[in-house]
Design a protein around this nucleic acid. Structure first.
Length: 139
DNA sequence: GCCAACGTTGGC
DNA sequence: GCCAACGTTGGC
């Protein structure tokens, strides 16, 4: 299964907010970027991704899972954009900072490094494994 | 259909 | 707070 990374500004929607939303999860609303939208359309229920704090924190802090596939965002009158529904799965034992990611040569090709502005990104299996390890999670 | 101008994102 | 990178808009 594919892996992903979702960026969120903690002042707007933090990991604690995501945990507080519980098992039902929350609709990942507000994405208005075609590439990010395309990634979410490709997601399947059960696929996991990293939850990343941008601006404040700048670190991968948790793991989320898709609980409902892409659905159109009712706030977008054209129906072009939409989102998946995500629930928190587990927090990293230690956050993996952007600094640490940039310092690791194995992660130099991450979209987070190459195209930092994309809000929903694919993560390779290798990157997934390395960041879980750096974050203190066991498989 | 090109491209300059503008707005937004996000790291520093 | 600054600015680089990127996406979008709109004039031509």
């Amino acid at each position: 299964m594919a892996h992903w990374l979702y960026k969120s500004e903690p002042e707007v929607w933090s990991w604690d907010d995501q945990v507080g939303a519980g098992a039902a999860g929350t609709y990942w609303e507000g994405v208005r970027n075609h590439l990010a939208n395309k990634h979410m359309k490709a997601m399947e229920v059960g696929e996991r991704g990293f939850f990343y704090h941008s601006n404040e924190g700048k670190a991968v802090v948790g793991v989320v899972e898709v609980v409902a596939a892409w659905a159109p965002d009712l706030a977008d009158s054209k129906g072009t954009f939409g989102a998946v529904t995500l629930k928190a799965v587990e927090a990293l034992t230690r956050p993996v900072t952007l600094t640490a990611i940039k310092a690791d040569a194995r992660l130099a090709e991450m979209v987070l490094v190459k195209n930092s502005r994309l809000s929903v990104q694919p993560v390779t299996d290798e990157e997934w494994r390395i960041i879980r390890e750096l974050g203190g999670l066991r498989d």
